[in-house]
Amino acid sequence: MTDVALIPWSEDDLDLLRRANTPELMDQLGGPETDDEVRARHERYLRLGREGAAHQFRIVIPDHPEGVGIVGYWQREWRGEPVLEAGWSVEAAHRGRGIAPAAVIEMLRTARERGDRLPVHAFPRVDNPASNSVCRKAGFRLVG
C-alpha cells in the first residue's frame, strides 16, 4: 500500500486548495472556482472542522509535506438518514500511484478512531472511473 499520512486541515492549506482548483480536478464539481470562492471554501473547511461537522485532511506522501491532495468527510442526510459523505482529490502529477485509495482507507480508519460511527458514503458520478475505482479499492459497496 502507498505510504500516506493525513494532516488535519489548517490555515496553511489554502495553497493546496488553490492547486486543486484546476479544470481537471474540479470537472466533477462544476468547474474551477474564483479565488474568493476558494477562500470561502477554505474558511468553511476550517469552521466545520472546529464545529466537528466535517474533517478535511491534507494528503502527505514522503518528500511532499506540502500535500498532494485532499481527503475528507462531512455530515449529510441521504435517503432520510444521517450519513457521512467522503470526498477526495489528488493532484494530477501524483495520480495512478494508489495515493487516493490509501488516503481514503486512512481517512476511514481516522473517522472510526474519532468515534464517528455513521455509515460513510461516496457519490462519484458514473462517468468518473477513477473515483469509482478508488471506492472499490477502499472497500465501498455500490448501493445505488
Rank of each mutant, 00 (worst) to 15 (best):
D3K: 07
V4K: 01
V4M: 01
A5V: 08
A5L: 12
L6T: 05
I7S: 15
I7H: 14
P8W: 00
W9F: 02
S10H: 09
D12Y: 09
D13M: 00
L14K: 04
L14I: 10
D15Y: 09
D15P: 07
D15T: 12
L16P: 02
R18A: 06
R18F: 10
R18E: 09
R19V: 01
N21D: 02
N21W: 00
T22C: 06
T22S: 11
P23G: 05
E24T: 07
L25E: 12
L25T: 08
L29E: 07
G30E: 02
G31R: 02
G31S: 01
P32C: 02
P32Y: 00
D35M: 00
D35Q: 09
D35N: 08
D36H: 02
D36R: 00
E37D: 04
E37V: 03
V38Q: 01
V38R: 00
R39C: 07
A40G: 05
A40F: 03
E43R: 01
E43N: 00
R44I: 03
G49P: 02
E51D: 06
G52H: 00
A53Q: 12
A53W: 05
A53M: 10
Q56K: 10
R58S: 03
R58I: 04
R58A: 06
V60C: 09
I61M: 04
I61W: 02
P62K: 15
D63E: 14
D63C: 04
H64M: 12
E66P: 01
E66G: 15
G67S: 00
V68W: 11
V68I: 14
G69T: 04
G69M: 02
G69D: 04
G69H: 07
V71A: 09
V71G: 07
Y73E: 13
Y73H: 15
W74C: 11
W74E: 11
Q75K: 14
W78H: 15
R79K: 14
R79G: 06
R79H: 09
G80R: 05
G80W: 03
G80N: 05
P82N: 13
P82R: 13
P82Y: 15
V83Q: 06
A86K: 05
A86H: 12
G87S: 13
W88E: 06
W88C: 04
S89W: 14
S89I: 13
V90H: 11
E91P: 04
E91V: 09
E91F: 12
A92C: 08
A93P: 11
A93R: 13
A93G: 08
H94F: 15
R95E: 15
G96Y: 06
G96T: 09
G98M: 07
I99T: 11
I99Y: 12
P101H: 09
A103S: 05
V104Q: 14
V104M: 13
V104L: 11
I105D: 10
E106Q: 14
